[in-house]
Amino acid sequence: MSAPTFSASMDPSTKSIRTTSPSPTAPEGKPSAAVAPTLIDIENLDFHYGATKALHGITLKVPDRQVTAFIGPSGCGKSTLLRCLNRMNDLIDGTRIGAGSIKIRGVDIYQRDVDVIELRKRVGMVFQKSNPFPKSIYENITYGLRLQGIKDKGRLDEVVEKSLRGAALWDEVKDRLHASGLGLSGGQQQRLCIARTIAVEPEIILMDEPCSALDPIATAKVEELIHELKLKYTIVIVTHNMQQAARCSDKTAFFYLGKLVEFAPTRTIFMNPENPQTEAYVSGRFG
C-alpha cells in the first residue's frame, strides 16, 4: 500500500544524493546508503532507565549525509536511541549506558572527557513538539550563536537569513523577524526550530517525530525541507509514520521491544524485508 508513494518520492532523493555524495559512482537506482561512509557508529549499545533495560545490544551505522529513519511501535526505544546520540538522556534521572559505545567520526561520545556542550553543538535536535522560545524569530535563531559569544550584527543577520532560507521559512517571515516566534503556525514553528538548529551549523540533525503534531500540509513542507537539508547534513529521524519514513529516508532501522530488528536501505525494508516482524509492521499488521 505504501509502494506507490514510496517510489514516487524516492526518485528525487536519490538524484540529489547522487550529485552531492562523496561516492558519485553509485549506479542509478541502487540504494545509495551502501556507498556512503559511516558517520555514527553505534556498537552493541545497552541502555537503562533505572532498573529497566530500554535498549538491548544495538549495533547500527548511520551513513553520512543521508536520512536515516528509526521506526517501530511506541516504546520500542527509537526515541531513546535518538536522544543517546546527543546525550539528551543525560538530563533524565537514572539513565545510563550499560554496555557498548557510540562513536561519531570515530570519537566515543560517552568518553569521560567529552564536552557534552560541544557535542550538542555538533549534533542538533528538533523535538516532537515545536519549542520556540517566547522571543522574537530573530532572537530564536541567534540564540545559539549568542551563546557562543557572537555579537556582530552583520554576521548574525546573515546567519538568520541563511538559516531561515535553509529551513524554507524566509519568505514567510522575512517581514516580521522581530515578531514573537510563538505567533507562527505549528508548521512554521517547527521549521523555525529547524532553522534555529541549522544556525549553529551542526553536522548531524536529530529529529524526534518532527511532524507528529502537524497537519498534512505542514508535514509536507517539513518533509520537503528534509530532502534539501540532507545535502549538507546527516539527518536521523524518528517517526511513527511509515509513509514518512518511506518518503524521506535513505535507510531505515526497525526497532521492536528495545532491539534493532532490521536495518537496511529504506527500499528493502518496505519492499522485501528479511525479518517477518518487520514485514508485519510495515504492512500494518501490528504496531
Binding site: L91, R120, F127, N131, F133, P134, Y143, G144, L147, R196
Partner: peptide, 27 residues
C-alpha cells in the same frame, strides 16, 4: 517553564547555566 525551552536550548549547545539564565529564568 516548559521543558521544551530547556531541551531546545541544550540541543543548541548551551551549557546548563546558559540555559537557566537565558531560557528559564527570564520566563
Amino acid at each position: 517553564v516548559p521543558k521544551g525551552f530547556r531541551e531546545g536550548s541544550l540541543a543548541l549547545g548551551a551549557t546548563k547555566w546558559q540555559t537557566i539564565r537565558k531560557a528559564v529564568l527570564p520566563y
